[in-house]
Amino acid sequence: MVVVRAWKSSSEKTTNLLKTICNLTQNLLSENGISFDDIGVIIHAGVYRRNFRTEPAFATHIQGDLKLKCGPVTQESNHCFSFDVSDGSCSPYVALNVASHMLRIKPEKYCLITIGDERPNKQSNWPYQPITCVMLVALEGAGYQLTGTNFDSSAFDSSTYVEMIFDSAKSANVIGESSSAAQINSDNSKFSGDTNWLSGRHIHAFLSQFTEGTTNTHEIIDQSGKTVTATWV
């Protein structure tokens, strides 16, 4: 599928996700001697944005703040394409799968995948400790090679959706209470995090313990019961 050529994460408590992602990206590129010109696509994967923003895509803010190929269209100009994907905690693997296609559609060297969440507003309860993660992904080369993903919705429980609701007492739109699907047991052969983790934490924890030279299996079980199993070498 795709190769994660380099990645970087930050577990520092962030008050500005955009700034954290841009700093991580600049450091990642500079540490690996990669030029911004080699990035043709930015995909952001996350659920929570400041003030529950829905448009434009968060990835367009990343592209804009990185000043990445933002010039006018000419017959020779080079451009980047940016958009967001999401599917709860399974979002990183949606992004990696979509990246494998975008690298064919827009065949520049790298796709930048950014994963992260931020507290939408101070009125919302925020029990999470998100980790922000950025990855440079290519179709080939050295790195962490994702060889397959399998999404399984058989235990998906639609009553567990996390929603934005209006809290009259706070006079604000906030994250509503939600429940979790019945517990799904993961076997010990797979690396699996907690169902309450946000997606950046899942991918950070997995890549941090990755063992080179062997097959690594990663399972993410979303709060909704949906799961994704990924194999890496």
Partner: peptide, 25 residues
């Protein structure tokens, strides 16, 4: 907000085993 609305759309339509996700652009 989470997970993707595509999961619920698929469930309501009786589509089983499909990959489901949301794209925001």
């Amino acid at each position: 907000l989470s997970p993707s609305l595509a999961n619920l759309i698929a469930e309501k339509l009786g589509i089983k085993g499909a990959e489901c996700f949301d794209v925001s652009n």
